[in-house]
């Protein structure tokens, strides 16, 4: 396979993975108004758990928990569920007491603590070395080599993404999604209408974290390795940028956000050769460009590139409405005669 095709499939994979990550964060932040600044931590938990479950017993100086050699979809789903469990702990401890802005601060500190913990507690997930040699799903069974695995797994990720898109759009188009957005706009007023705002936020947090975990799981199975350099807490802002660029509360816009921000600004530059004498400069320029883009979008199009779409009532115009209901038109004529 030519390097270019290989590279395009790699990019395609990251678009699908970031779509999943973006939809999860969009449910929490775009629909639920939860500023989950620890989002990347949930991605990491999904990645580590999926990786450690797919790997066999630790050997050759590696150390990590699990090591059950679980087959592909099982490790991925359990990775998602692990992120969910973590989200449940965090939410139960913080949601009832904290306003969203304080919650954001707690979450950002939490992601730093989690980062340091995983980085330094080697027996858990290998510390700074992380997990390596995570088996490539189906590679043995289908006899895939490095060249064929990449397009194959990009295809698998597309299927996973399509499934998760369907599940998510059912959620966001449902009365559940509507009430969740109501609580985002005004939690007190929503509670005054009889809604248990805590419950709606909790569920959106759990489902969003499942998406984070599955996205992380896909990344570890694709890359075969995962360590703390892959999820610096700042990466959360990358996904936020993708959500904000694509449009808050907009699942379709998210695809554009996943294309523009993470892929264009962090994956693409990795393939651009370094400027001689300035190692890492390209990546730093990309990071700056994300910041600038985020500011430009917030300044010129605060609703995102593709704004939240209006969910129209599809009710007929008033005149038609009356024609269809006899009782009301009768009442109208009496009013007219008066």
């Amino acid at each position: 396979m030519s390097p270019l095709v290989y590279y395009l499939f790699t990019l395609a994979f990251f678009v699908f993975a970031y779509c999943i990550l973006g939809w999860g964060l969009n449910l929490q932040f775009g629909h639920g108004g939860i500023l989950n600044f620890a989002y990347i931590g949930f991605v990491a938990i999904g990645a580590y758990v999926t990786g450690a479950l797919s790997l066999g017993k630790p050997s050759g100086g590696q150390s990590y928990i699990f090591g059950f050699s679980l087959p592909f979809p099982v490790g991925l789903i359990l990775g998602g569920l692990a992120a969910c469990v973590f989200a449940l702990l965090v939410s139960v401890l913080t949601f009832r007491r904290l306003r969203t802005d304080y919650l954001a601060m707690v979450l950002i500190s939490l992601s730093l603590v989690l980062y340091d913990f995983i980085n330094n507690f080697v027996p858990l997930f290998g510390g700074a070395d992380g997990l390596t040699n995570v088996p490539e799903p189906f590679a043995d069974a289908l006899g895939l080599d490095t060249n064929t695995f990449v397009p194959f797994f990009a295809g698998v990720s597309l299927l996973v993404a399509l499934l998760m898109w369907w599940v998510m759009s059912r959620i966001t188009n449902s009365p559940f999604g509507r009430t969740l957005r109501a609580s985002r706009d005004d939690d007190e007023a929503t509670a005054a209408l009889g809604k248990n705002v805590f419950k709606f936020r909790l569920i959106s947090m759990l489902i969003g974290s499942f998406y984070a975990g599955v996205g992380g799981g896909l990344i570890v199975e694709f890359a075969g390795a995962f360590n703390t350099s892959a999820w610096l807490p700042g990466e959360t802002f990358l996904i936020f940028a993708a959500v904000i660029v694509g449009g808050v509360g907009n699942n379709k816009g998210m695809i554009l956000g996943a294309l523009i921000v993470p892929v264009l600004f962090t994956q693409l530059p990795k393939f651009i050769p370094d400027i001689p004498g300035h190692p890492g400069l390209i990546l730093n320029i990309a990071a700056m460009a994300i910041g600038v883009l985020l500011m430009l979008v917030l300044w010129f199009r605060p609703q995102g590139v593709i704004p939240e779409k209006k969910r129209l009532s599809k009710l007929p115009p008033l005149s038609e409405r009356h024609r269809s209901t006899g009782a009301i038109s009768a009442q109208l004529t009496t009013e007219e005669t008066l």
């Binding site: 059912r170 959620i171 449902s174 009365p175 559940f176 509507r178 009430t179 957005r181 109501a182 985002r184 706009d185 005004d186 007190e188 007023a189 929503t190 209408l193 009889g194 809604k195 709606f200 569920i203 509360g249 939240e308 209006k310 969910r311 129209l312 009532s313 009710l315």
Partner: peptide, 29 residues
């Protein structure tokens, strides 16, 4: 006034409906 600004006028009323099986995701699916 505490309108739910990111919702349409119609949705503002729909949110308030008392009986909403669709608020449970179990029912949605």
């Amino acid at each position: 006034s505490r309108e739910l600004g990111g919702l349409t006028v119609f949705e503002n009323l729909m949110v308030a409906a008392k009986v909403q099986p669709g608020e449970s995701l179990m029912n949605v699916y």
